[in-house]
């Protein structure tokens, strides 16, 4: 089975600082993967490159079958061909209702003209309600999302990610600010989602990563330091050096 996302020899430099250094990485169509690494390891920059926010100086990024060169696409195009991203800080549209937030994320035509003529059909409303109950916001659809708690906003953002129905989800610190119960729910959701599509989770919290029970990639100074199960990588002396040796 060929990889869904293939990152090959990517490097990027900011004002002389090498944020990503000859990074190679790949993930299968239905795989859950955690990426860990100390601050400044290049985790966020990696996501920026995949989602088109940052252009690398060199290297290749391909997605899907047949492979599409992501470096040629704009952010919105990348999102449209099936890569969803959840940001570290929850960013939902606070001035709009939960329903509207989800409705915008729903997989539909994205052009201004179709948006003008759009009327939420029965299937769309059902899908939104389905997602809302999945993320525990079924009773909050009419509320402004700005009024939600921090954890609820995290959920809403995950819900928006699901509504996009992407082939690949990039999730940046999903559990930050969540209660224990919410964390468990999040883990379940991510594991379940990864049965049908690829999920990359960037996380600091080792406990959370452990609960995901998935392969782990350790980034350090912009390249892959180690890869394998969590136990395997945490036994790696280099990883220990990076995490504790400073």
């Amino acid at each position: 089975m060929s990889a869904l996302l293939e990152v090959l020899g990517v490097s990027v430099t900011f004002d002389g600082f090498r944020a990503i250094n000859d990074l190679s990485f790949s993930i299968q169509p239905a795989e859950l993967r955690a990426i860990i690494g100390p601050n400044g390891a290049g985790k966020t920059t990696f996501m920026d490159i995949v989602t088109g926010k940052t252009r690398p100086d060199s290297g290749r990024v391909q997605f899907g079958t047949p492979p599409v060169d992501l470096l040629r696409l704009r952010e919105s195009d990348i999102a449209r061909i099936g890569i969803g991203r959840k940001f570290q800080r929850p960013t939902v549209f606070e001035a709009q209702t939960v329903f509207d937030n989800l409705s915008m994320a729903l997989r539909n035509e994205r052009s201004p003209f179709s948006a003008l003529g759009y009327k939420a059909g029965k299937s769309d409303i059902e899908r939104i309600e389905e997602i809302a109950s999945e993320i525990g916001l079924a009773d909050h659809l009419k509320r402004l999302s700005g009024e939600l708690s921090h954890g609820q906003k995290q959920w809403l953002e995950i819900g928006m990610l699901l509504a996009q129905d992407p082939q690949l989800l990039l999730v940046d610190e999903p559990a930050a600010g969540m209660t224990l119960g919410e964390r468990e729910h999040t883990t379940d959701l991510l594991v379940r989602t990864a049965r049908t599509r690829a999920v990359i989770v960037v996380e600091h919290d080792m406990e959370f990563v452990r609960r995901l029970e998935c392969p782990v990639t350790v980034l350090h100074e912009g390249s892959v330091l180690a890869e394998g199960s969590l136990d395997h990588v945490t036994a790696n002396p280099e990883v220990i050096e990076v995490y504790l040796g400073r």
């Binding site: 926010k53 195009d77 999102a79 549209f93 709009q96 509207d100 994205r110 948006a115 003008l116 759009y118």
Partner: peptide
């Protein structure tokens, strides 16, 4: 309508709405 929602979303967070696939 939805157009208005997207437009307001552009006003509030341009980068975010882009990652939802809107041009």
């Amino acid at each position: 309508g939805k157009f208005g929602n997207v437009v307001k979303a552009i006003r509030d967070d341009e980068a975010r709405i882009r990652f939802l696939g809107y041009s």
